[in-house]
Design a protein around this nucleic acid. Structure first.
Length: 878
DNA sequence: TTCGGCGTAA
DNA sequence: TATAATTACGCCGAAG
C-alpha cells in the first residue's frame, strides 16, 4: 500500500480553533475551546485521510532565521492570549495520547519543517496532505502534495491540488511565493510592494510568470503608478520573497520513518477527554472498548444451574454474587445468585437460594470465606429478608477503591479489564441504563453473574498483592472490611421519623412561601418563576436595574452572597433571601425526606457510600443525612423530626472537637499547636493570640472570628484569595494573616512545604492509616490544576486521617456495644460525629464509653476530645 | 436525560 | 504566568 503522510501546522490550527470557537471551559475552569477544536480536526483527519504517517509541526522559539534577514519579521504581532497559552500543554497531551509525532525546530518555523518533510515524502513518491490555516503553504502544492486550508470554523476546509490552485488563482504553486512577495502579509509583517494586492499581483504574474521577470521587465508594465512603486520597492519585493519562501531543506532531525502513525492509546485518550469533559468525543472511544469486551464475552464459560446447593459445592473460599439490580438496595429484589469456587461454577435463582437451608447456613457460617463485590449491598439486601451473611474475606469493590480513590468507575468489568480480565461485561451493557434498564432473560443473567463471580474470584489474589505492596492491606482488612458490616447494620436499622411533625412544618412553610412569593411579585411588578435564577436575574438586573455584582457563565449570578450585598438596595432582596431559605427547607428537607421514609418501618434508611470520596470520608444518599440543617434555627428544627424508634429512648450524639486541627498538630508535629491542645485551649482564641500578638484577655470577638477563618483555610490548603473572600477583607490583609499564622506555627509551615514536595516525588499523599490519594496533576504545567493538587496535597492527609479515626472508632464502638450487651443502636455518622438511639437507662453508660472509645480510637501526640449530648429528638441532642 | 446554579452539611 | 478554599448530595429550571 502506498504511504500517506499528513502534516499538520500545529500553531496555525490551534489559533484557528481558538478563535473559531467560543471560549469554552470545563468544570474546573480550564479553557478548552482550542484543544476541543484541535481534537475535532484531528479526529476528522484520522478518519478521512487514514494516514500511515503523521506529524504535527510547531513553531519553535520566537526568533528564526528570517529575523536575521528582516528584524521586523512578524513584528506587531499580538501576544498569545493567556486563555490560549494555558491550553497548549493539553494539545501536547492530546498528541501523546494519540501517539502522534510532534516536532519543532530551533530557528525555524513549522512551515519549514512541513516543507522539508513533504519534499522528502514526495521524493519517495508518497502522497502528502498538509493541514493549515496559512496560505503560504500553498507553495508546496504539487502532484503529490495537496494542501487543506481551513475556511471557516475548524473542520471546514478547501483542499488545493495543482488543478484547484489554478482554478482559484490562475497560477502555479511556485508562483504563490511571488504573489505573496508582491502582496505582502500583514500578519507576518511582510512588507511586499505597497499598493499591490491580490488582484494586481495575480495580473502581473499571469503576464510575466515570476517576480524576477516582473522586476526585469518594468518597462513593459502598463500603468504608471504601479511601474513607479515597483521600481521604488525593488529590494523590498526581493526581500519579501526570501521571507516568504519556505526552506525545504531545513536541518530537521526527524525522518519519515519516525513519524509513522499506528494507533492511539485508548486509555490515555479516554482519560484526557474525561478530564477535559469532551463528552461528545468521548462516546466513540468508549464504544470501541465495549465492542472489544463483547467479542471476549463470547468466550465460553460453562456453569451449572442448580436449585439446591449441597455441601460438596461449597468448599473452600468462594466468590459470591448476590445480584441486586436496583440501585437502591433497600427492600430490593434479589435477581440471582452466582457462586464460583474450586468445585465449580453454580447459578441459582433468588427464589431457590432463599429457600435453601443449606445455602443459608453456609451464608451464616463465619468460617466459610466469601469473596464479594460490594458486600454491603448483599448484606443489606439479604438483611431485609432476615438472612444473615458472615465470613466476608475479600471485597473487590473496597479493594479497588482503596487502590485508587481517584478512579470513579468501580464496575466489576472495569476493574477486571484493568487487570486484563476481559470476559466480563459491564452491568450497563447487560441491563441497559435509564428508562431502558431491564432484567435480561434468565440464561443471559446467569451467564453474566457467573462471569462476574469468576472475575471476582480471580481478582482477589491480584488485588491482595497490590494492597500489600502499598502497605494498605491492614487498612483494607482491619478497617474498611469490618466497617462495611457496621454500616450495613446502621442502614438496616434506619432512623425513625416523626412524619406528622414534618408534615406540619411543611404546611406552615408552604403558607409562608406563598405569602412571600406574592410580596415579591408585587415588589417586582411582574409574575415570574422565583425558583429560576435566570428569570430572577432578569427581574433584578434588567427590570429593577440593580447593580450587577457577579456574573456566571450563563448570565447574572443571584447567589446568596450577591443578594446580601444588595440587601439595602431594594426591599425585594430580603424577601427573596427568605424565600430561598424557606424554599430550600420545603423542597429538600420536608418533601425530600417525606419521599424517602420507608412505609413499612416508618424510618429513613440512607445508604452510606464507602467507596466514593477522594479523602476517605463517607457520603450519604437517598437521602443525604449528612447535610441536615443546623446553622439557622429555622432549618435546625428539621432535626425535631428525627426521633428514637422506641418509646422512652433518646437520641445521643457525640462529636469530635476540632479533630482536623488536632490531626494537623499531630502530623505537622507543630510544638505550639500540640501544646495548645494538650492544655485544652480554645484553639481559635489561641490562634488569635499568636497571630495578633495579644494576651488572651485582649482577643476580641472579631479577632477570634478571623483566627477561626484562618484555621479553616489552613485545613483546606490556604490561599490569600480564599481567605479574603470568607472574611471580606483585602487579599493583602488576608496574605498578612496567613504569613503571621505560618510564622507563629512554623511546624505547620514546614508540613505544608514538605507534603507538597512529597506529593511531587511520590505522586501521592497518605493518611494516618495509609489511605492514598494520587495527585498526578501536581506536576502539571497548568497553574490551575497544579494549585488545586497542591491544596489537596495539604488537605487530604488531614481530612483523610480524621476520616480514618472516626471509622476506627465506629468499628470499636460497634464491638463495645455488643460486648457490653447494650441495646443502643448506632444510626448515623456525620464526618466527625456519631448519632445513636438509646434507652434511657443506658445513657449513663454511654456517657462513659462513647467518649472513651472515640478518644482512644488512635493515639496521637495530642489528645482527642469528644463532646456529647442527648435528648428526645436529634434537635434536642445539642 | 443532562447540565448549571444554588444551597445544605462537616 | 492568572487564579483562587476541602469534601460531599439534592433540588430546580432550562436546555437537550
Amino acid at each position: 500500500m502506498k504511504n500517506k503522510l499528513v502534516l499538520i501546522d500545529g500553531n496555525s490550527i490551534l489559533y484557528r480553533a481558538f478563535f473559531a470557537l467560543p471560549l469554552l471551559s470545563n468544570s474546573k475552569g480550564i479553557y478548552t475551546n482550542a484543544v476541543y477544536g484541535f481534537a475535532q480536526m484531528l479526529l476528522k483527519v484520522l478518519d478521512e485521510e487514514k494516514p500511515t504517517h503523521l506529524l504535527v509541526a510547531f513553531d519553535a522559539s520566537k526568533k528564526t532565521f528570517r529575523h536575521e534577514k528582516y528584524e521586523e519579521y512578524k513584528g506587531g504581532r499580538q501576544k498569545t492570549p493567556p486563555e490560549l497559552s494555558e491550553q497548549i500543554p493539553f494539545v501536547h497531551d492530546l498528541l501523546d495520547a494519540f501517539r502522534i509525532s510532534k516536532y519543532e525546530l530551533e530557528n525555524y518555523e513549522a512551515d519549514d519543517v512541513i516543507g522539508t518533510l513533504s519534499k522528502q515524502a514526495e521524493d519517495e513518491n508518497w502522497e502528502v496532505k498538509v493541514i493549515t490555516g496559512d496560505k503560504d503553504l500553498l507553495q508546496l502544492v504539487s502532484d503529490r502534495v495537496s494542501v487543506a486550508l481551513t475556511r471557516k470554523g475548524i473542520t471546514d476546509v478547501d483542499t488545493y491540488d495543482p488543478v484547484a490552485l489554478r482554478e482559484r488563482y490562475g497560477i502555479d504553486a511556485s508562483q504563490i511565493i511571488d504573489m505573496k512577495s508582491l502582496m505582502g502579509d500583514p500578519s507576518d509583517n511582510i512588507p511586499g510592494v505597497p499598493g499591490v494586492g491580490e488582484k494586481t499581483a495575480l495580473k502581473l504574474l499571469k503576464q510575466f510568470g515570476s517576480l524576477e521577470t516582473i522586476l526585469n521587465s518594468i518597462d513593459e508594465i502598463s500603468g504608471k503608478k504601479i511601474k513607479e512603486t515597483l521600481e521604488n520597492n525593488h529590494d523590498l519585493a526581493l526581500l519579501s520573497k526570501e521571507l516568504v519562501t519556505i526552506d525545504r531543506n531545513s536541518p530537521i532531525e526527524v525522518s519519515l520513518n519516525d513519524v509513522s502513525y499506528g494507533n492511539y492509546d485508548q486509555e490515555s485518550v479516554v482519560r484526557l477527554f474525561t478530564d477535559l469533559e469532551f463528552k461528545s468525543l468521548l462516546d466513540r472511544f468508549e464504544h470501541e472498548e465495549s465492542e472489544e469486551a463483547e467479542s471476549d464475552s463470547k468466550i465460553d464459560i460453562s456453569f451449572e444451574t442448580v436449585t439446591e446447593l449441597s455441601s460438596n459445592m461449597l468448599k473452600g473460599e468462594t466468590a459470591l454474587i448476590v445480584e441486586v439490580m436496583e440501585e437502591n438496595y433497600h427492600q430490593a429484589e434479589i435477581q440471582g445468585i452466582a457462586i464460583v469456587n474450586e468445585t465449580g461454577k453454580y447459578f441459582m435463582t433468588a427464589e431457590d437460594a432463599c429457600k435453601s437451608a443449606e445455602f443459608k447456613q453456609w451464608l451464616n457460617d463465619e468460617t466459610k470465606k466469601k469473596i464479594t463485590f460490594d458486600k454491603k449491598r448483599a448484606e443489606v439486601a439479604l438483611g431485609w429478608q432476615n438472612i444473615e451473611i458472615k465470613g466476608f474475606s475479600f471485597d473487590v469493590l473496597i479493594a479497588s477503591y482503596l487502590l485508587n480513590t481517584t478512579e470513579s468507575r468501580h464496575d466489576i468489568a472495569e476493574i477486571a479489564n484493568r487487570e486484563n480480565i476481559t470476559y466480563v461485561q459491564s452491568d450497563e451493557s447487560v441491563y441497559g441504563k435509564g428508562a431502558k434498564r431491564k432484567m435480561p432473560e434468565r440464561e443471559a443473567l446467569a451467564n453474566h453473574l457467573i462471569r462476574k463471580a469468576q472475575a471476582v474470584y480471580e481478582l482477589k489474589d491480584i488485588l491482595t498483592d497490590k494492597l500489600e505492596k502499598n502497605e494498605q492491606y491492614s487498612l483494607f482488612d482491619q478497617l474498611e472490611m469490618p466497617l462495611s458490616n457496621v454500616l450495613a447494620q446502621m442502614e438496616l436499622q434506619g432512623i425513625k421519623v416523626d412524619i406528622d411533625r414534618l408534615k406540619n412544618m411543611g404546611k406552615e412553610l408552604d403558607e409562608r412561601l406563598k405569602t412571600i412569593e406574592q410580596e415579591v411579585y408585587e415588589e417586582a411588578g411582574v409574575k415570574f418563576n422565583l425558583n429560576s435564577p435566570k428569570q430572577l436575574g432578569e427581574v433584578l438586573f434588567d427590570k429593577l436595574n440593580l447593580p450587577v455584582i457577579k456574573k456566571t457563565k450563563t448570565g447574572y449570578s443571584t447567589s446568596a452572597d450577591v443578594l446580601e450585598k444588595l440587601q439595602n438596595q431594594h426591599e425585594i432582596i430580603p424577601k427573596i433571601l427568605l424565600y430561598r431559605q424557606l424554599g430550600k427547607l420545603y423542597s429538600t428537607y420536608i418533601e425530600g425526606l417525606l419521599k424517602v421514609v420507608n412505609n413499612n418501618t416508618g424510618k429513613i434508611h440512607t445508604r452510606f457510600n464507602q467507596v466514593l470520596t477522594q479523602t476517605g470520608r463517607l457520603s450519604s444518599i437517598d437521602p443525604n443525612l449528612q447535610n441536615i440543617p443546623i446553622r439557622l434555627e429555622e432549618g435546625r428544627k428539621i432535626r425535631q423530626a428525627f426521633i428514637p424508634s422506641k418509646k422512652g429512648w433518646v437520641i445521643f450524639a457525640a462529636d469530635y472537637s476540632q479533630i482536623e486541627l488536632r490531626v494537623l498538630a499531630h502530623i505537622a508535629q507543630d510544638e505550639k499547636l500540640i501544646q495548645a491542645f494538650k492544655e485544652d485551649m480554645d484553639i481559635h482564641t489561641k490562634t488569635a493570640m499568636d497571630v495578633f500578638h495579644v494576651a488572651k484577655e485582649e482577643v476580641t470577638p472579631l479577632m477570634r472570628r478571623h483566627a477561626k477563618a484562618v484555621n479553616f483555610g489552613i485545613v483546606y490548603g490556604i490561599s490569600d484569595y480564599g481567605l479574603s473572600q470568607s472574611l471580606s477583607i483585602t487579599r493583602k490583609e488576608a496574605g498578612e494573616f496567613i504569613d503571621r499564622y505560618l510564622k507563629s506555627f512554623p511546624g505547620v509551615k514546614r508540613y505544608m512545604d514538605e507534603i507538597v514536595q512529597k506529593a511531587k516525588s511520590d505522586g501521592f499523599v497518605t493518611t494516618l492509616l495509609h489511605r492514598r490519594r494520587y495527585l498526578p496533576e501536581i506536576k502539571s504545567r497548568n497553574y490551575n490544576l497544579r494549585s488545586f493538587a497542591e491544596r489537596t496535597a495539604m488537605n487530604t492527609p488531614i481530612q483523610g486521617s480524621a476520616a480514618d479515626i472516626i471509622k476506627k472508632a465506629m468499628i470499636e464502638m460497634n464491638n463495645r456495644l455488643q460486648s457490653e450487651k447494650l441495646e443502643t443502636n448506632m444510626l448515623l455518622q456525620v464526618h466527625d460525629e456519631l448519632i445513636f438511639e438509646a434507652p434511657e437507662h443506658e445513657i449513663d453508660k454511654l456517657k462513659q464509653i462513647v467518649p472513651e472509645v472515640m478518644e482512644q480510637a488512635v493515639e496521637l501526640d495530642v489528645p482527642l476530645k469528644v463532646d456529647y449530648s442527648y435528648g428526645a429528638t436529634w434537635y434536642d441532642a445539642k
